[in-house]
């Protein structure tokens, strides 16, 4: 009986801890998760915020057409895009062979 209660307590604790861990992951991944996983989508790979954190980026001068944008591309962005392109796979579906 005592063993049973201890087992229940242990499992309930594991459930509680794993629940907290899963909830805790969300804010950490939060807004940056999409950028890290797929920076090339839309303008994500070239926005100003991301560029500010990248060293060795090419920055457009103030003579750009709209003048105020600070658009950057880094070698890191290019390398990541290459990796994504090489990872694209388009698999055919098999078929049943004749009897």
């Amino acid at each position: 009986m005592k063993k049973m209660l201890i087992s229940i307590l242990i499992i309930a604790t594991i459930l509680f801890v794993s629940g907290c861990a899963q909830n805790g992951d969300v804010p950490e991944e939060g807004p940056n998760a999409g950028v890290l996983e797929d920076p090339s989508v839309g303008s994500g790979g070239m926005d100003g915020d991301m560029g500010a954190e990248v060293t060795g980026a090419i920055t457009e001068s103030e003579e750009t057409p709209n003048g105020s944008d600070n658009i950057t591309i880094s070698q890191e962005d290019l390398d990541r895009l290459k990796e994504e392109l090489e990872g694209l796979e388009f698999e055919d579906v098999g078929g049943l062979s004749g009897d």
Binding site: G42, G45, I58, E63, T64, P65, I73, L78, L85, L88
Partner: peptide, 26 residues
């Protein structure tokens, strides 16, 4: 879905090309 993903990659390349061209023209 694959077309959507491929289009996104092509658009990114397009934007990178435009950005680099703007820098190079100066």
């Amino acid at each position: 879905v694959w077309v959507h993903i491929a289009n996104e990659k092509a658009d990114t390349l397009d934007e990178y090309e435009t950005t680099l061209r703007t820098v190079v023209e100066g």
